[in-house]
């Protein structure tokens, strides 16, 4: 466990008061998923985000939802990809440029990139697990020489469920990155791999002793992927997963996000696999 001193500083002010931001751009990713770019509306802005952290996004008059940070820029812009899965995320998905949204955060511990310096990096994303990994990908690109081999495996249910499709094509053109994209099922328009994301693990190129794996996606996908990686010899301590739970407060008071001893909001969302392995194999934790 990390100590309080390691925790990133939260936004000053009332811990539950959202900071107004304005929607700058909106892009449709899939029929039910939208990417929004937001920027500070007034003088206040939230603290600098780290890859893997999340914020509470607030739709005025409707409520809040924890949403991963898919991009953060020094000028204060934030990128979020939201799937319409309820009242709040539905409202967030209907935002248009110029609309106002509330933000508080950033919260939690993200991907431990510093610890992974000098190592090979394997990123495995399932569905909407890619957005919280996106800032990590760009962090790797920015300090590419600090890392060994980088491989990204991205799986989604069908080709139309893949997010950042055009952006991924630019990643594919890089020669310092190995990219595997697979879908669970596809029509004839798809010429790529078909099979759940775990089917790509045997083909992944990594050396077990010097690889750190970052996993994000549905819980079952992360569990199966971690098992497949361990079966290939990767140590559970070298695997990190990003957990998702119901959240109201995001600062450890409301109790909703507990996962065993962890508050996903502040101990996570990124947790080391060996510490949660026993809980992931249980049901209804």
């Amino acid at each position: 466990m990390l100590t309080d001193a390691d925790r990133p500083a939260p936004t000053p002010g009332h811990p539950f008061a959202p900071v107004p931001y304005r929607v700058r751009a909106v892009a449709t990713e899939t029929p039910d998923t939208t990417t929004i770019v937001i920027e500070p509306w007034g003088t206040r802005r939230i603290g600098r985000t780290q890859p893997g952290q999340f914020v509470m996004l607030y739709a005025f008059g409707i409520g809040e939802s924890p949403i991963g940070v898919a991009g953060g820029h020094p000028d204060g812009q934030l990128v979020h990809t939201v799937r319409n899965a309820g009242k709040v995320t539905g409202a967030l998905g209907r935002l248009t440029p110029g609309d106002t949204v509330g933000v508080r955060g950033p919260y939690g511990h993200g991907w431990p990139i510093g610890e992974a310096k000098g190592r090979d990096i394997l990123i495995v994303a399932g569905g909407l697990g890619l957005p919280p990994l996106r800032p990590l990908v760009y962090e790797l690109f920015a300090r590419r020489e600090s890392y060994g081999r980088v491989e990204i495996i991205y799986g989604a249910r069908t080709p139309k469920d893949l997010v950042y499709y055009d952006e991924i094509q630019t990643w594919r053109r890089r020669n310092d990155l190995r990219l595997q994209v697979t879908v669970d099922a596809a029509g004839r328009e798809w010429y790529g791999d078909v099979g759940v994301v775990t089917t790509r693990i045997p083909d992944a190129r990594f050396e077990t002793g010097r690889t750190t794996a970052f996993l994000c996606g549905p819980e079952i996908m992360m569990r199966m992927t971690a098992q497949a990686l361990v079966a290939r010899g990767l140590a559970p301590e070298a695997i990190w997963v990003s957990m998702e739970r119901n959240m109201k407060c995001a600062v450890g008071f409301c109790g909703h996000c507990q996962f065993g001893p962890s508050f996903v909001c502040r101990d996570g969302p990124v947790l080391r696999y060996d510490r949660v392995q026993h809980l992931l194999s249980l049901r209804e934790v």
Binding site: G187, R188, D193
Partner: peptide, 21 residues
């Protein structure tokens, strides 16, 4: 190379359920 295993259904005549390489 790569081979797609296709299952046919009325609403989806060519659904690839797996690829083999």
């Amino acid at each position: 190379g790569k081979v797609a295993l296709e299952a046919g259904a009325a609403d989806n005549p060519h659904l690839t359920v797996q690829t083999v390489g």
